[in-house]
């Protein structure tokens, strides 16, 4: 493979790097890896919940990307494409581990079941009653408890900040399905927080 000198990469767009990498410029591929490795690791560790699995999926994702790069036609951006590979690999890892939810309806109640629950924990003003770390710990537990297809859309939209359209492209679902899943995920997280923080508040004040 030919290599472009390292100093020239920063000014190049992802598309230009992809094109060079497709022409056997390994340095261009390595620059794409540098641009996305931290984001993809962050996404996979949040999907999988542990660093060992996240590192496996990170490596697998870029190996897959390298092998498929020649057939990448740019129908979506490189960024969307690499997130799609990573998300699919993470979902595969979860399924292989046996921790899977096939019957989503049983695992996550429909929104109408979660509407009339109390929100007493919120009336206690969680910003004052809890330290941010306690809130984040509770939320992270809630995210790990989400069935994977809901976790994926939630992480892409609310954590990574993707638009609905782009998150739907990553997951290869319609925008309306993306919106519906996201709403259910948020309703579930709200309810999980409610139960978790209510319990913690009670134990703090015993």
């Amino acid at each position: 493979m030919n290599e472009t000198n390292m100093g020239g990469f920063t000014a190049l767009t992802d598309d230009e790097l992809v094109q060079r990498a497709q022409e056997d410029d390994y340095g261009s591929f390595e620059e794409l890896v540098r641009r996305y490795e931290k984001k993809i690791y962050g996404h996979t560790i949040r999907m999988l919940g542990n660093p060992e699995d996240a590192e496996d999926v990170l490596q697998e994702t870029f190996l897959n990307a390298f092998r498929a790069l020649r057939s990448f036609r740019g129908d979506s951006s490189f960024s969307t494409w690499i997130y799609r590979i990573a998300t699919n690999n993470a979902l595969m890892k979860i399924r292989k581990s046996g921790r899977t939810y096939t019957e989503f309806e049983e695992e996550i109640p429909p929104p109408e079941m979660m509407r009339d629950r109390p929100y007493s924990w919120f009336e206690r003003n969680p910003r004052e009653a809890f330290q941010e770390k306690e809130l984040m710990d509770a939320l992270n537990r809630a995210v790990n408890d989400l069935p994977e297809k809901y976790r994926a859309i939630f992480l892409l939209r609310d954590v990574e900040g993707f638009s609905t359209q782009r998150a739907a492209e990553v997951l290869e679902i319609s925008e309306s399905a993306a919106k519906s899943r996201l709403h259910r995920a948020r309703m579930y997280l709200r309810e999980f927080l409610e139960k978790a923080l209510d319990g913690e508040f009670e134990s703090k004040n015993e």
């Binding site: 949040r46 929100y119 924990w121 919120f122 969680p126 941010e132 809130l135 984040m136 939320l139 992270n140 995210v143 939630f154 609310d158 954590v159 900040g161 948020r186 309703m187 997280l189 709200r190 927080l193 409610e194």
Partner: peptide, 12 residues
């Protein structure tokens, strides 16, 4: 409470 949950999520 819903908005609070979403705001908190963005800090993860």
């Amino acid at each position: 409470s819903f908005e609070f949950t979403v705001e908190l999520s963005r800090k993860i």
